[in-house]
Simulated scan of single mutants.
Amino acid sequence: MIVKRLEQNQEQQMQLWLRQERIIDMLCRRSIEHETAIADLRLAIKG
C-alpha cells in the first residue's frame, strides 16, 4: 500500500514537472516573439 502511494505521488510529480516544462517553453517562445516585435518597432521608429 505504501509503495503504491509512493508510485502515485511520483507519477503526479512527474506530470506536474512536465506541465511546468511546457509552460516554461511557451513563455520562452512568447518572450522571444515579444523581443522581436520590440526590435521591429524600434527599427520602424528610427526609419
Rank of each mutant, 00 (worst) to 15 (best):
M1T: 02
A44N: 12
D40W: 03
I24Q: 06
L18N: 04
S31T: 10
I32D: 04
T36Y: 01
L18G: 05
I24S: 12
M14C: 07
S31N: 01
L41S: 07
A44G: 04
R19N: 05
E21I: 14
Q13E: 12
R22F: 06
E11S: 05
Q15M: 15
Q20K: 11
R19V: 10
I38A: 01
Q20R: 13
Q10W: 07
C28Y: 09
V3S: 15
L43V: 13
R30S: 11
L27V: 08
R5I: 00
W17H: 11
E7G: 13
E7A: 15
R5P: 00
L18Y: 10
A37H: 03
R5E: 01
L18F: 10
G47H: 07
N9Q: 09
R22P: 00
E7I: 15
D40A: 02
Q12T: 07
N9L: 01
Q15A: 09
R29K: 13
M1D: 08
L6P: 08
W17F: 11
I38P: 00
Q13R: 09
E33S: 14
H34I: 15
T36H: 08
L43R: 10
D40K: 12
E11C: 05
E11T: 00
I38R: 01
E33D: 11
D40R: 10
N9R: 08
Q13H: 06
H34Q: 07
E35Q: 02
L16Y: 02
S31P: 00
M26V: 15
R29W: 14
R19S: 08
R30M: 12
V3Q: 15
R30W: 13
L41C: 10
G47E: 01
W17P: 00
H34T: 10
G47Y: 00
Q13Y: 08
R30V: 13
E7K: 15
V3L: 12
S31D: 04
I23D: 02
A39F: 03
M1G: 01
D40L: 03
R5F: 02
E21G: 14
L43H: 14
A39K: 01
T36V: 15
L18E: 05
S31C: 03
Q20E: 07
R29H: 07
R42P: 05
M26I: 15
E33A: 14
D25I: 14
R5A: 05
E7P: 06
I24L: 07
V3W: 14
L41D: 00
